[in-house]
């Protein structure tokens, strides 16, 4: 659990962060979203005291972080950054083992944990003896993630973790990231300027502008109940894509055809519209069987899906 209370920071005459507050629940992922210069990265870096706030307090698990030795604090918080910051003179194995070595873990434990992680992160064994410059950007970012996760910290801070990757690599890593069991148990604060990424990964989003919090809420709340013009305009360009991501089959259940009897396999109604569309794009599947809330089953094809989605959208806008 992380809590920020009225955090402010000035750099010279510039008010970088102004009375920022939020609370991140245990195992929740909060994404700080905003344009560059909005204060999101500064806010993030104050959580592990890379930057000290001028005013306000930060609590992690109800402990005020200013009472802790910053080096001890940081060893307990995973940190992933856009530029990865791997040590060029260390091998991949040494880079991953950095914090455990500082904590004086024994060798066997470090080796076991390293192997466990590279397997989860789809890195190959032979990369361990390589140096960072021998790896691709995507592989480096996986190593960066492994370095942050090796001590299994309960809190993870991520500063534009996928920002330096090309689109294809980013999408695949985001997916893996979302699927990673290890990350589901963590309290995560992540910074991004990419709206789609925020909607893809966030439990809740904290939209920031000019150092201040504009709105905090779930992706759906941000999309359908924007608090002001800034919030509305921020998402305007990608409304449709975002809607596909945040709305799931259960939401549009009532706009879909009648229930049927079906005894084969079925998909969950938790599926987002986007995911359902992707499944339907496979040419051998004309229809999906979806099991809804009361174990009822509906069969839908692409047309029925888009029709149901449009009806739901219209209903939301006229509310």
């Amino acid at each position: 659990m992380i809590e920020l209370k009225e955090i402010s920071k000035k750099f010279g005459d510039t008010q970088a962060v102004k009375q920022v507050f939020f609370r991140v629940a245990r195992e929740e992922t909060l994404v700080l979203l905003g344009t560059s210069g909005c204060g999101k990265t500064t806010t993030l870096k104050m959580i592990n005291r890379l930057i000290e706030p001028d005013a306000g307090q930060i609590f992690i698990n109800d402990k005020n972080i200013t009472d802790e030795d910053p080096n001890v604090l940081r060893k307990g918080i995973g940190y992933v950054m856009q530029n990865i910051g791997l040590f060029p003179h260390y091998t991949i194995a040494e880079n991953i083992a950095l914090v455990p070595k500082l904590l004086k873990w024994d060798k066997a434990k470090i080796i076991n944990r390293t192997h466990e992680l590279i397997e989860k992160l789809h890195l190959t064994e032979n990369t361990l003896s390589m140096y960072p410059h021998e790896l691709s950007g995507g592989q480096q970012q996986r190593v960066g993630l492994a370095r942050a996760l090796i001590t299994d910290p309960s809190v993870l801070l991520m500063d534009e973790p996928f920002g330096a990757l090309d689109n294809v690599t980013r999408t695949s890593i985001q997916k893996e990231f979302k699927a990673l069991e290890e990350l589901k148990r963590k309290t995560i604060v992540m910074v991004t300027h990419d709206v789609l990424e925020a909607f893809e990964l966030a439990d809740r989003i904290c939209l920031m502008d000019k150092g201040e919090v504009v709105q905090i809420g779930t992706p759906k709340e941000l999309l359908y109940q924007p608090i002001n013009d800034f919030a509305r305009n921020f998402l305007a360009g990608q409304r449709l894509a975002l809607a596909f991501k945040v709305i799931n089959i259960q939401d549009i259940w009532s706009y879909l055809p009648e229930e049927i009897i079906h005894h084969g396999e079925s998909e969950t109604a938790e599926l987002s519209i986007w995911e359902a569309m992707e499944l339907l794009r496979n040419k051998d599947r004309f229809e999906l069987f979806i099991s809804g809330a009361n174990k009822t089953i509906k069969s839908i094809n692409f047309e029925q899906l888009t029709k149901g989605f449009n009806q739901y959208q219209n209903a939301q806008l006229h509310e």
Partner: peptide, 18 residues
Amino acid sequence: IDQHVKEAARAMGMSKGQ
């Protein structure tokens, strides 16, 4: 030295001496 490497070192909890 690359600033990001230094920042990473700090963020990992290395002391100034380390």
